[in-house]
Design a protein around this nucleic acid. Sequence first.
RNA 1: GCCCGGAUGGUGGAAGGGUAGACACGGAAGACUUAAAAUCUUCUGGCCUUUGGUCGUGCAGGUUCGAAUCCUGCUCCGGGCACCA
Length: 886
Amino acid sequence: MPYNPKSIEPKWQRFWKENQTFRAEIDHAKPKYYVLDMFPYPSGDGLHVGHPEGYTATDILARYKRMRGFNVLHPMGWDAFGLPAEQYAIKTGTHPRITTKRNIENFRRQIESLGFSYDWSREVDTTDPKYVKWTQWIFLKLFEMGLAYEAEVPVNWCPALGTVLANEEVIDGKSEVGGHPVVRLPMKQWMLRITKYADRLLEDLETLDWPEAIKKQQRDWIGRSEGARIRFAIEGHADVTLEVFTTRPDTLFGASYLVLAPEHPLVAQIAASAKRAAIHQYVEESARKSERVRMADVKEKTGVDTGARAIHPCTGEALPIWIADYVLAGYGTGAIMAVPAHDERDFAFAQAFKLPIRCVVHSSDGKEPELPFPLPGISANSQFLNGLDTAKAKTEMNRWLEANHCGEAAITYKLRDWLFSRQRYWGEPFPLLKQSDGSVTTVAIEDLPILLPEVEDYRPKEGGKSPLEAATQWLQTHNPKTGAPVLRETNTMPQWAGSCWYFLRFCDPQNENAAWSQEAERYWMPVDLYIGGAEHAVLHLLYARFWHKVFYDLGLVHTKEPFQKLVNQGMILGFSYRYYDNDLDDRYVGKHDASVRVFPYTEVRLDGERALARDGQEVKARWVKLEDVYWVAGEKDRKPMHPRIDELELEEVVEKMSKSRGNVINPDQVIEEFGADAMRLYEMFIGPLEKSAPWSTEGIQGVFRFLQKAYRLFFNEETDGEPLKTILDGVGAIEQQRLTAKTIAEVSADLEALQFNTAISKLMVFVRDIAKDSALPRASAETFLLLLAPFAPHLAEELWQRIGQRDTLAYAAWPVADPALLVADRITIAIQVNGKRRDEIEVPAEANDAEIERIALASERVQKFLDGKTPRKVIVVKGRLLNIVI
RNA sequence: GCCCGGAUGGUGGAAGGGUAGACACGGAAGACUUAAAAUCUUCUGGCCUUUGGUCGUGCAGGUUCGAAUCCUGCUCCGGGCACCA
């Protein structure tokens, strides 16, 4: 019988399930290891080939650690609230609960078919009322701690999605999901005070074993800057002061005007009456400008003079106050002092509006610099600061400001409070009641969870109202304590809520009395290894860290950070095949028409976003589905051709998998054709885990052949009945013992370093060489199956059983290499002459340097290159090479 | 514009100062076969007339007995941030 994954794999998947092989229980006698995947959103498209990459990596680790004696927590669940189910509901009227349930079942089936060793008894679903209850309970905790508040804030409103978005969810003025335009609108929203934790979120990054790039992204997002707040009095308005934030208080003497953001609350109050119309118009215009337009206009500075004057705190000089949209309302105090000589933006503005520019910092050599000069230097033209370097001048100015009660040192963050409400149906309702006097009260814990009402229409309502507004019966309720009529909060929580604490629920998923028990948390947390995509660098990972710190303050968790080690897996890309045509309006897509001209990629050049043919006309890229590409033999390799249009060679491009590019690989099909073990192996063999690489339909053949070869080490494929090959008792020949020991050592080291691709290559070498000269010895056979088990668990279990083992190898002890076998008795030494490899010699391992040198110099080939000269120097690298310098 | 990564055969990648190209794909030849598939064996970085030589890790330098690896400057590709005062 040949290797047949279809008969082996379901058998072992059933075995693991029926025996609950991977069920994890607290066991204080064993060290724990918590290895976690970022749980998926169960979309309707099902798993794609990218998901299993991270899941395979964590599964290999989980299986390896179990064999190493660790008590492993390896759970899986569903981040199941979210927009696609809701949009599907809007389109079809199907309740998101139904779609979600269906999708989860499909995802679970697919994930199980890959043979991952999850403890399915711990499965969580963020939309499950038993889970929602505790998400709402956590919100109550946040509320009680004063970390949740309602505020009228300018929000990112996305009309296409019908909801507001957090800052983190807006990229280049467009929604992260779908890329729809986003506008700024003031709206009353629930906010979480993440800014209160800014410093701790920043500092504790230092303690984490995370990729530097992710830590940096978080640091940048938090954006801590040190400086000073400075208060300016305003001429003719004794009752108001204008506060600005600056990182360069040392340049205060160079401030020649102030700028307020158009949205600044003081604008209306201080504006001179003559200017009111112009100001009003400018404020209106900038409010209308979308983020996108505002950003596109970076180069051009616009603004209006308010006519008001501020008093310089040191000189008493009257400085004009302008409004301009280059000052952001949400950062610092929404107002700046402009120092055009030492800030590029202020410089551009001052030039555009002919405002004075005063140089107050000289370069460190004391010379007058070319302006603008934004670097540190030596203060000048600044009274008591003259001659001080920038660092000292800042401190000195801060002291002066404080002493004169017009400012003080201050720290500002780019990070803003987390906008936590969404005008959506498919999310967790807030456990809040709005009383008739406008105050808000909380729902008692016993009354949780607050479940979603049934609605007819899932669409957001006019004016940014939640679809829940329409559920009158649900909406209008009574305060259980007083009986007074109250209204429920109709916004729902963002999708991030559930994923902020799921890793804690996994520790104790069935608990009905608490979100998790202290015992379970103390035993399992923190997560030892967390693997997921880099796209969550600031969103999920920052929010989850924030909640975790809140839990820490509440004594609910015992570590400051949830995820000790984080690894981002790369993306699995696809090969796609394209050509171009001049059917720019897609009029004839899929149809044949004589007016459509096609162009091979060789006749098209890319000019920014556009593609141009040789004759200059614009053309549009078309993709041929991977399975439709017609291959012809080329000179060196095969060429991809269009299946129907003659002589049209296609361009091979590596890009993200997407339906529109026709390069999506379906895991179900891969498993059908090659089996789960081959799929797992291939995803790991394709390259380093962190790196993106394209899926190659040919490449998977290689690992499939390896599994066949491994199978044939044990079985005679041709014979039926008793097909097992002879396995010799004992340890076998010395070469076989050596190879086995070497493979143990190398595979173990590679696993510890998460270098799965090289670990697999070493298993390939083992299979290639172990039975070259004599039959497979039992010791090597067993060792190999143990080493193979984390990677290809189905085949390993099958062979393990067939060589007479009764127990699953999931908990068999990981083999240890005998150090004596790792040292060869004869070694090969490369001989270099002047750093160039000229010969190699084989010597006994214990040969000393002088002896090696003697043999090397005696070599005929070395003599030829020595050409009668005497070596000036001989360098010996122990056990590797010898370099003769002449 | 600023800040991170990265660049090694036809392809995915090994090697992290010490024999560049492990392992795999693809390609070529052969064995088996009536034939094909599958499998097995051999070869497979370029150039040169060879059993040998020479050049080769994006480019140009440097350090070193020795550099893919370290240093300096550049080019290109990918990612992040982007009026954050």
